[in-house]
Amino acid sequence: MNRPLLTSGAPTRRWLSDRDPRLRILAALAFAGATVSLFSLPALLLALGIALGTALAAGLSARRTLRRLLALEGFMLVLLILLPFSVAGTPWLSLGPLQASHEGLLLATQILLRANAIVLMLLALLGTLEPATLGHALGRLRVPEKLVHLFLFTVRYIDVLDAEFTRLRQAMRARAFVPRSNRHSWNSFGWLIGMLLVRSLERSERILAAMKCRGFDGRLYLLEDYRWRAQDSLHALAFGLLLAAVLVLEALQ
């Protein structure tokens, strides 16, 4: 058995897992919304600190989280390296004909801090949810029902199809397939994905038939009714105060 794709891998701490999932979604959204409006470095650092604190308190595995953040950094590297050179302003560093400016450096730093803070908070608050719970909570937050259904079904089948994919891939490996940068490899990957799609489609027909058998009329019933507790209000208040502190710090700068 391979490991499920969509898990944080860490057992969630009680203080977080007891919270209403809707609160976690709204808190992550509020944090992202507040953080994009920040420009001053102290406020951004505070935001990153809050995100880091939440991630630590949520018990995220440090290694895995770091790897995910590094993937993000790799993606943004181009932007970060080029920005100091492409923004005009007071010179900071010159490489031959290229001039790096202070303004560009500042902008790149802002982006780096902002993106990391948001992603860290996202992984801490939402990445630790069961994917199905996330779907149900989204449904309770009035996300269109069809979208929630699609979400729940997709979550269910990602792991099934991943297992199927691993099986097909293993069969290829057994025939000594080593992916290289050539037409043969690309064609083989194409056929692999094609086969995965064909089998998925057959599976989806069986699912629909089985579900109709059980009286599926096109709706899943969202059974979980989340109860908002006093503790949730307390946490929401504390989180709101932290966000307010960040925004005040930003306003003071």
Binding site: F153, T154, L201, S204
Partner: peptide, 11 residues
């Protein structure tokens, strides 16, 4: 169509 769309989206 939802189960079908979802299975393909997972694929």
């Amino acid at each position: 169509q939802i189960p079908r769309a979802a299975v393909l989206s997972a694929a």
